[in-house]
Structure formats: structure tokens, C-alpha cells
Design a protein around this nucleic acid. Structure first.
Lengths: 208, 208
DNA sequence: CAATGTGAACGTGTTCACAGCA
DNA sequence: TGCTGTGAACACGTTCACATTG
């Protein structure tokens, strides 16, 4: 049950299972099979069972999984039983959109501070935040419990900003800049890059 | 050289190679090795060479790749030599942010029409667009050459909207709704789901 | 009897290592 | 000599199939 031996793809899928379970829960389901989860997510029951087996035995043979129990287990495995305060870096158009995005908070991801490396932005108000200078990053990490940084700066500045985040103790980075960031071992990065998605999509759309 | 035998992961990486090449080009590089590309992207030279080998032989042994040539080849492979008009569905907060996003157009992805399934939104102005009703989708596909749909509607409506897009001849979908969409064979979907990214990130951040 | 949990088989993707060529 | 292109070896992820059990 050691984290290091769980394939990363499996970890990437666990949140999907949570989603499917929440959906089923809203529909009043209390006991659920890997088959049912698979139908929601368009994946095979075997894969779901295999994925879950990396973490333990949560089901009852011949019956299925108690939805409530499985949901709690998954949340526990992923560390989603506590909130995760995050800080935003970059309050341009994209950064402002991220601040106004209502999808994070209900899942326990709350932006608690906004930073910017440009002096023009520092001190201005964005939503409920007063934009702070990068040198105050340590305060967010040490006094606000922030371990996640959301990067929404232009690509030229992104690597520098990421370095600063890491230097100040940030452990996870959600990067919206269109670059392939370098981070040291042990730092987790997730890239949000819609252009990349479109550019690979066209391969399958061209000539027809 | 048949597309169907190119692993999808390879296709997903090609846009990264384009990025790296553009960066190197700006720095005045004219001949480039797989090593150099790998350094930019933090990947091994072998992987880059192997990926390229699915499509042909673009380099010169002992020397490397002519940057300009490789760039053109990659753009051609991905179908990025033409523009790709796209339509947006959903002009709520997220949809408006997407319309205002300046990252798509320079890469040849231009939003040319905005739709919404809610009667309240239809007819209103968003940016340069007048929001159109879903029933006019076919017009965008047939008369504006749209084959990509960008979905930015609430999750409850997302599957319905995706079905409508597919029914009207859309071939590729960039989905921002937090669902696992079902699409028939031959339709390409890319999901943009930052919450999912965060929820898998925390697995590696918890307990420390 | 129905659905889990899981080794074993399979398939896919990555890395290695080197032959071949400019 | 240096770097590509690529079979072969390897590692990783998925699927199968079935023994197990409530």
C-alpha cells in the first residue's frame, strides 16, 4: 500500500471515480458495482477494480461497493478530506478569470492570496484580494498554509515564477502558462494547456 | 505511415516539439538535435527521435534537423497549416473568459460564433458576437467551416450540448465541463478540467 | 449466484544500444 | 566523428479469466 508503487495513471483516475460516485449518490444509489461506475465513465469494470485494488479491498463479493464507504476511502486516499488553500500568481485576464471561477471552492480548493511580479499590478484590487508582491510569497506559505500555487503569468515569466514558488516552499503547481516547466524532484506540476489539446486534436480532424 | 498506427501519446507530444522549435527559432538556431529539443522539454532524445520516426526521416545523421524543415513537417502532420474556425457553446462566466482568451487565435484557432441553449442568453452580445440559439449550429458547420466545438456549459447540460454538436457534424470537442462525455467513434474530445488536476495532485502533497 | 480481487497474459509505450550515414 | 533512425529489450499499464466469498 505504499504510494510510490501506485501508477500515476491510477491516481489520475481516482478523482473520476469520486465524480461518478457523487453522481450516483445524487440519484439515490447506495450500493454500486464496478460495472455501474464503468458505465458512467466509459471504462471497463476490470480497470476500476484493478485501480482500487492498489489501495485495499473496499467491496463485498457478489454485492459491490457501499457507495458512502468507497467515496470516503477515495477522498481519504487523495487527501481530499481537508481544504487546500492556494495562491494565484498573475492577475492579468487569465488570472482574473481564475479568481472568478466558481468551480474550485466547492471542491476544497480556495484561492487565499493573489500575487503578481509586475509593480503595476501590486497593490491593486482584484475581486476580494489586494495584489501582493512576489517577495511576500513566504507569508502565504508559512502563515496561510498554502502549498499549491496557480500560475497564470505570460509564458516568458512562467519559469521564473515557478522557481520562486518552489523556493518559497510551494509543493504543487497548477500551471496555465504554455511552457514545459522544470521543477525539482518531489514537486508536482499539472499543466492546463487548451492550445496543446487543440493542436493534437487537428491531427485526427485533418483530411476529411 | 498510416495514422491509425501512430500511438496517441505520440500525437499528444508533437505540439510540444513545435513549441520547442519555435523557441529555438527565436533564439536564432537553424539546425537542431534531438538532444537540444529534449533539454527544452525535459525528455530524452531517444523518445523524440522515436516519435518523429513514425512519420518519416527528417534529420541528417551526424548533424541534426533543419529547424525550419522539421517545423513545417510537424505543422503539416498535425494539420496546422490551415486555420481552424471553432464555435463556442455557453456564454456564462467561463464562456466569456474563453472568448476573451487571446491564446487561441495566434495558433490558428478562431472562435467564429457563440451559441447558448438558454433563451435568456440568445440574442445578447458577448464581445463581438451575438449569441445564437443551438438550432442554428448547422449554419456554423456548413457555412463557416466550423468543425471544432468548445463546450463551456454547466455540467448538467454538457452531454446534451455535446450530442447536439455531434449531430450537427462537429468532429472535435474541447470540453470544459467537468464530465466524462460520451461521443461516437471518430469524434475527438479533449477535456480541460483543472479541478481533476488538483484532485490528483493532492495525493502527492498530503502527509508531509 | 453475482461481483470482487488478482495473478497471469497480453498489448502498448519507452529506453537501449548500435548500425548507418553525412 | 556525431547524431539519426530503429530493431530489440524492457517496463509499464490494461485486460482476461477465474478462484473466492458474502
Amino acid at each position: 500500500m505504499q504510494s510510490s508503487e501506485v501508477p500515476e495513471v491510477v491516481v489520475l483516475r481516482l478523482p473520476l471515480y469520486i465524480r461518478a460516485l457523487l453522481q450516483l449518490q445524487r440519484e439515490g444509489v447506495e450500493v454500486v458495482s464496478s460495472q455501474q461506475i464503468g458505465e458512467r465513465l466509459h471504462m471497463t469494470p476490470a480497470q476500476i477494480r484493478k485501480d482500487l485494488s492498489y489501495f485495499g479491498k473496499f467491496g463485498k463479493q457478489g454485492r459491490g461497493y457501499c457507495l458512502r464507504v468507497l467515496l470516503d476511502e477515495l477522498r481519504d486516499i487523495l487527501g481530499l478530506t481537508t481544504d487546500w488553500p492556494a495562491c494565484l500568481v498573475g492577475v492579468g485576464r487569465l488570472g482574473r478569470a481564475i479568481i472568478n471561477y466558481t468551480g474550485f471552492a466547492p471542491e476544497g480548493f480556495t484561492i487565499v492570496a493573489a500575487f503578481d511580479s509586475s509593480d503595476d499590478q501590486v497593490g491593486t484590487s482584484v475581486g476580494e484580494f489586494t495584489v501582493r508582491p512576489m517577495r511576500e510569497l513566504a507569508d502565504a506559505v508559512n502563515n496561510m498554509g498554502v502549498s499549491i500555487g496557480i500560475v497564470a503569468v505570460p509564458s516568458e515569466q512562467a519559469q521564473t515564477v515557478i522557481d520562486q514558488l518552489v523556493d518559497n516552499g510551494i509543493k504543487g503547481i497548477l500551471n496555465y502558462a504554455p511552457i514545459a516547466p522544470y521543477v525539482p524532484e518531489g514537486i508536482v506540476v499539472r499543466n492546463i494547456d487548451p492550445v496543446l489539446s487543440l493542436q493534437s486534436m487537428t491531427f485526427y480532424l485533418k483530411d476529411r
